[in-house]
Design a protein around this nucleic acid. Structure first.
Lengths: 337, 337
DNA sequence: AGCGATTGTGGAAGGGCTTCCAGGGAAGCG
DNA sequence: CGCTTCCCTGGAAGCCCTTCCACAATCGCT
């Protein structure tokens, strides 16, 4: 493997000069620079990333800690993240927390080991203790799809979104409303629940606890997956009295629920209407009425924020709440039949 | 930031001893080791990844070069990859080639810069020239969903899979068969086409060229995406004579096609039957008859192979062809109506 | 011509680790 | 008791860069 010394020798200059040629330093004459760069090209030389990082005290990488991504929501997010990361000239290092509780461990490790210059911490809660420790190491962190008063974060207006979706169901004439939610230890899940409940209460409708299902966590993803949605729906179907319309906390859960409904021969939306949350790519085809989150945008903006922090500008706390949009398709539309 | 010197001083030992304690070296007494590790724990010290990598001549990271992943196929693959990568104790660095043609550039760069210890090169062709250069740098590479005679690779039996799917359509009584394919510069696309054609010819059916649609590349993903599938279907619908059944080269394309069909009021499978390829998560819900690729498995095995190469064992060429399975659902089933 | 400023350049130092080598001390052996 | 052997240990060297400092050469000015 060629090093900077080889290049220097071959070009008949010192190593400092090679470095200057490669890093667009102003302190080098155009002729020398050209001479050096020609040799560099000839040899196909590229500086060793680790050595460079060690000397510069930066890795050139941005990390993303993500709970294991079975949920396509993370993919849409990742697209936005990847897009902006490479626009900034960084590499994206992906860390998956197969268990939500291991996220903090990963976060602290990669920061302490200086594996990345900045981190996106996605969809997982962050304790005060770990947050403080990470911040003391001066590595920028942005929480995505999550909130903490002392950390930069970006998320959608979950409460409002849930409220709007629920209002819509009510306006369509549905009165017996239920909700399939993720695990309530997830903050977005709690917020969506509150928005839902607020709308229900404001409309003077009855809140039936058995229609409020918190998905199980068998698959270790806080319930945000299709099988959990399927199981939740199965439970609901066994009740003597069923709701007329359901607000489901994510599209993938709604997919599971739809499957259970189809198996049970329940017609959608005639017998039971459904609104999801996310609007992942396939939901259009499925005809799922859902709340669209700007996932790509969320990923991009989160990384952009990291970029600003890395450039040193723009200190202080940053909280960005994004708007959602109710997308009306077939699973809840056209009013109570 | 604490360094190994700080730890050594605090523990009252030399830096070599700290290093030995941290790396499970046999040349250290249990008492000293315990003493050092206690200090390490107290200080929350973690070795600097770049420095460590520089000294050890390995980065601890495995790279994956992926064409921009709008296609959920890549996600299922990524899951398998991520899974095995972390099992091996490596980090996963993700590089996305927003344009298929930029893949080689990325590959060569990250290898030359020693950013990763090994690379997965996914779903993109690799030229002899670049391959040779990369191999000369002794960085293990495995091609995924792609083939090259001189490189390790893993893929599915595309030809056979397409043949089987087409046979199935024929057995169901369909005679007027067409295909919506990705760009033919993609090897899997060509193989699937050949399998399709072989089955059609063997059954003495007519091959109608206008029923063989190669998706456009407007979105820069070799046509393997829903909008391209949508457009392809629209074209087919405009023909005076339509096929009765279509083999589609990927599920996401099939989703686009289904949307076009729904908009046009064409009933599936009654007016037109459809078989996809991949079996991504959502296809069950959609009821898409499709060819299942073991995507997770493919990712895992590819990484496992890299792991073996990294351990030094197991040289020589490795080619792994995985079996597929036809999953019969609603869009093509139950015979010609 | 003489002097300070300016411009380029070489290479030492330093970044934080692993590894190797030399050597101290204890243990084993005759 | 003396000498080898073995076990641990400290720290220098080296991994490959960037950056800084010192200095040579050139320039512009009086």
């Amino acid at each position: 493997m060629a090093t900077i010394y080889d290049v220097a020798k071959k070009a008949g200059v010192g190593i400092g000069t090679v470095s200057r040629a490669l890093n667009d330093s102003p302190n080098i004459s155009p002729e020398t620079k050209e001479k050096v760069l020609r040799v560099v090209r000839e040899m196909g030389y590229k500086p060793h990333a680790l050595a460079r990082g060690l000397a510069r005290k930066r890795t050139g990488a941005i990390g993303a800690v993500v709970p294991f991504f079975t949920n396509y929501f993370f993919i849409e997010l990742l697209k936005g993240i990847q897009n902006e990361v490479s626009r900034l000239g960084y590499d994206l290092v992906l860390f998956s927390a197969d268990d939500v509780s291991r996220g903090e461990e990963i976060l602290e490790r990669i920061v302490r080991e200086s594996r990345v210059d900045a981190v996106l911490y996605v969809s997982m809660p962050l304790s005060d203790k770990v947050l403080r420790r990470v911040q003391s190491l001066r590595v920028p962190v942005v929480l995505v799809d999550q909130f903490h008063p002392n950390a930069d974060s970006i998320y959608v207006e979950n409460h409002r979104a849930a409220y709007k979706a629920t209002r819509f169901m009510i306006e369509q004439g549905y009165r017996r409303l239920g909700m399939i939610n993720g695990q309530l230890r997830s903050r977005p899940a709690r917020e969506r629940q509150e928005g839902f409940l607020q709308a229900v209460r404001e409309a003077d409708l009855q809140v039936r606890l058995e229609w409020l299902v918190e998905c199980d966590n068998l698959d270790g993803q806080d319930g945000f997956n299709a099988p959990a949605g399927y199981r939740a729906m199965r439970m609901l179907l066994e009740l003597r009295e069923r709701p007329e319309a359901l607000f489901v906390a994510s599209d993938v859960q709604a997919y599971g629920a739809l499957r259970a409904l189809r198996e049970a021969g329940v017609r959608v939306p005639d017998d039971l209407a459904l609104i999801g949350f996310d609007d992942i790519q396939t939901s259009e085809l499925v005809g799922l009425t859902t709340v669209r989150q700007p996932m790509f945008e969320m990923g991009r903006l989160a990384v952009r924020r990291l970029g600003n922090r890395l450039k040193g500008s723009d200190d202080g706390l940053w909280h960005k709440a994004l708007e959602t949009e109710l997308v009306i398709r077939q699973t809840c539309a056209g009013g109570r039949s």
